[in-house]
Design a protein around this nucleic acid. Structure first.
Lengths: 228, 228
DNA sequence: CGGATAATTATGCGAATGTATAATAGACTC
DNA sequence: GAGTCTATTATACATTCGCATAATTATCCG
């Protein structure tokens, strides 16, 4: 089962930096969790995928639970970082910025067939562990706040309560499309989810976001000929 | 750990119908899967929760995998049944029927803190097992088709492709709100998700669905004083 | 009333899991 | 270059897992 050396032999002793080892173990944990869920993310499987022996997990993280927590924290940080990246290099017009943010959430690397698996794999551990739950809640609200700021910048007249509800609604559209696209990746044409997302968020907010499609990769000018 | 009789004693032999036993085992499987995920739904835990010894699982279902499949099938059937129930006894006006359908999807028993746990717990098994995947896909499309029919009945003028995309969008709103409401049950006021859902779906379809709020429990006449 | 029969429980077994501990190998210091 | 230290590997262990099989109990039929 091990890849590089013959079975029965001693795994060659190779030294590496602490950061590399931690990263490799966290990456392996996320990969296995995404692919096979909690049942697949065993200590031995993680170690093998990371190219080390199980003992190193204890050495660097103390226990499997702590490695799991570290992997989840890394996941959350990456999510918000991607959200910020989406706005980098986009023009100053509020509508365009919002459209870029929505589009980025509905195509790779955010929309990825593995993403929902990872999310589902962690769900129960998150709900059972108060520390992870707080981290999750913080990450979710951070994302929604980013969205809410972009919506507020549109300059519509709306009460704070209404603004909050609009942010919840737009976030729900994005989450729902993200979910469906991840679970049934072949159920939608390329760019279809982005187009639906832009139109829906625009409808909820009373703006036309599809006019910014030309700035968005993989969409261009409505390839299926449907213009409105 | 066992509830009704002293440890060390032999569990009393009590006979029951095959249907009761199957139902109890399936129910126990779903409960444990929803609460603790795949790691918690062990053969022993399921049997204990069902008030039975592990051997009965093999006797009635052959293996744990088959029990798991049966539990998932039961879950899917229940979902679509609830969707149909929501339309029972509702008037004939298309807008009202659509509003009732949306509202029913965003409050108990469909919106339930356990629902998302159950869904997440099964995700990897579903993706790994072609039979379960087909069943999942069928259930999802059935639900979306119900929604699409309700949307078509609104009588708007729209191409078939556009109708499909509207159904995907509305389904995404519902799914996203369902997800957020399940994961963070205390993050939203009572009826808030239903109201947001009605407004968003209405905005996407160009109709006002909030005018049917008075027919919907827990909402009444916009309790937070916000009328529009 | 007394065997068949089927449902239910109890026990056993091999494999896998997480973790603790011992053995080993390379790097660093003087 | 010998000695020490730490990263890494290997081994051991108790527990739990799913499953197979044996033992037990109630019901059914004569």
């Amino acid at each position: 089962m091990q890849t590089t050396f013959l079975a029965g032999e001693r795994r060659p002793y190779v030294r590496d930096s602490e950061e590399n080892r931690r990263m490799a173990l966290i990456q392996a944990t996320q990969d296995l969790m995404a692919e096979g869920g909690p049942l697949a993310a065993t200590v031995r499987a993680i170690a093998e995928r990371a190219g080390v022996t199980p003992g190193l997990i204890r050495h660097y993280f103390g226990s499997k639970d702590e490695l799991s927590r570290a992997a989840y924290a890394t996941l959350m940080d990456g999510m918000t970082a991607k959200g910020a990246d989406a706005l980098y290099g986009v023009g100053a017009e509020p509508g365009e910025r919002l459209a870029a943010f929505v589009a980025a959430s509905l195509r790779p690397p955010v929309l990825d067939s593995k993403a929902v698996g990872l999310w589902a794999g962690y769900l129960h551990q998150v709900q059972a562990d108060p520390a992870l739950l707080a981290q999750h809640e913080a990450g979710y609200l951070r994302y929604r706040d980013q969205l809410q700021v972009l919506i507020a910048d549109l300059g519509r007249i709306a009460s704070p309560a209404r603004l909050r509800q609009d942010a919840i609604a737009c976030n729900a559209v994005i989450d729902g499309l993200w979910l469906e696209g991840s679970v049934l990746p072949h159920g939608f044409g390329p760019g279809e989810l982005v187009r639906i997302g832009l139109r829906s968020v625009g409808a909820i907010l009373g703006r036309d976001l599809l006019r910014y499609s030309m700035f968005i990769p993989e969409i261009g000018m409505a390839p299926d000929g449907e213009t409105e």
